[in-house]
Design a binder for these strands. Structure first.
Length: 334
DNA sequence: CATCCACGGGAAAAACAGGGTC
DNA sequence: GACCCTGTTTTTCCCGTGGATG
């Protein structure tokens, strides 16, 4: 059934991006000056999750490295590298400049100094989920350096501008924007069809089944591919050479769950306890939530810390906070 | 209208992480 | 290995704000 599991994975970047021609072309045109040794404008890419922002950025990065020999391309996921230090370190690491950085002997702002002195080929830095960055002043400084150009990615355009240092905001008002809309059903179907061609045996799945998956994914390619993967695995385990409608139907909740589970797995113990409490209640008010949390955990963190945890979990789309004031309640998403 | 909760920014403190030294 | 040093990261503390709520 499955001939190449890699192409079904969400992180897989296809050699040919479907349905993002306009965005891809626009991005590569914007970055074109880099071939002449000039610094391209900062680009802002925004749109809901699973609409190909990251994919387009990585795709362009691959192309850039192939076409312009003298260019570097660094991708930073600010979810994972949200502190100033980590984000900068990640860039330097990518450039192979961290070899002799020892934490202890690294003076203040040495990391940034390294970047300033970087004199290799021009570098495009992609900051994914940039609104998660804690200290955005560094972003401003990075913007100052001619050898670096930036692609900023976030779900919401205004989140970028809000997250960014105000000195940078004014400069970004004229920058290039690329908006990514949710995929249509047809587009999701053909995205999946391409993966099916590469990753599954022939006639493994019917067109109307792909359509069903696309419908369930509601414009999110990540979810669509997760469902497809789950359906293929089911058929594979049953050693059938066709995916049945049953496989698809049971893969829909499983696929959604898989996407969600990825987020849950990143939670630390205290956050997980909070999550479990929310799972037991349809809805719960902050004080009750905190009390329950205190009872369940050995050494409870302060209420302020718990609020930070909850905010983080809300950003992960795991929970929803209703109300802004005394009417605030928390619940799981969906 | 006073009060009450909860939120969330910011500063400061505490905890943590390597690495060097003796 | 215990201890210190320097920088990072997490947690706590303090507090102003603001929308309910009675």
């Amino acid at each position: 059934m499955i001939t190449d599991a890699r192409v079904l994975r969400q992180e897989f970047v296809p050699g040919d991006l479907e349905h993002r021609d306009a965005e891809t072309t626009y991005l590569s045109e914007t970055l074109a000056p880099i071939a002449d040794g000039e610094t391209p404008e900062t680009v802002i890419m925004h749109g809901l999750s699973g609409v190909g922002k990251t994919c387009v950025a990585k795709y362009i990065g691959d192309n850039l490295r192939q076409e312009v020999l003298d260019a570097e391309f660094q991708y930073v996921n600010c979810w994972q590298h949200y502190s100033r230090y980590r984000a900068l370190h990640r860039i330097l690491e990518g450039l192979g400049q961290t070899l002799d950085i020892h934490r202890q002997s690294t003076p203040r702002d040495e990391l940034f100094e390294r970047l300033r002195q970087y004199d290799g080929p021009p570098c495009v830095v992609v900051l994914d989920e940039v609104d998660q960055l804690e200290d955005t002043r560094q972003l401003y400084h990075l913007h100052e350096l001619p050898q670096f150009s930036m692609i900023l990615i976030a779900n919401r355009e205004d989140a970028i501008l809000r997250a960014v240092d105000e000195r940078l905001t004014s400069r970004l008002t004229g920058s290039e924007r690329i908006r990514f809309d949710a995929y249509h059903e047809d587009e999701l179907v053909s995205i999946m069809a391409a993966r099916v061609r590469w990753g599954l045996i022939e006639n493994a799945i019917q067109d109307d089944q792909l359509r069903r998956i696309a419908d369930a994914a509601a414009g999110d390619a990540r979810v669509a591919l997760s469902i497809l993967r789950s359906a293929a695995r089911r058929a594979d385990r049953a050693t059938e050479n066709q995916i049945t409608t049953d496989h698809v139907e049971s893969a829909i909740p499983a696929g959604r769950k898989e996407v969600r589970q990825k987020s849950i797995d990143t939670l630390i113990h205290h956050q997980r306890v909070l999550y479990d409490i929310l799972e037991e209640h349809k809805e719960i008010e902050p004080s009750a939530l905190y009390e329950t949390y205190q009872e369940r955990v050995e050494e409870p963190k302060s209420d302020r810390t718990v609020r930070n945890y909850l905010a983080k979990m809300e950003h992960y789309n795991l929970i929803v906070a209703d109300g802004t004031s005394r009417d605030r309640t928390y619940r799981l998403r969906e």
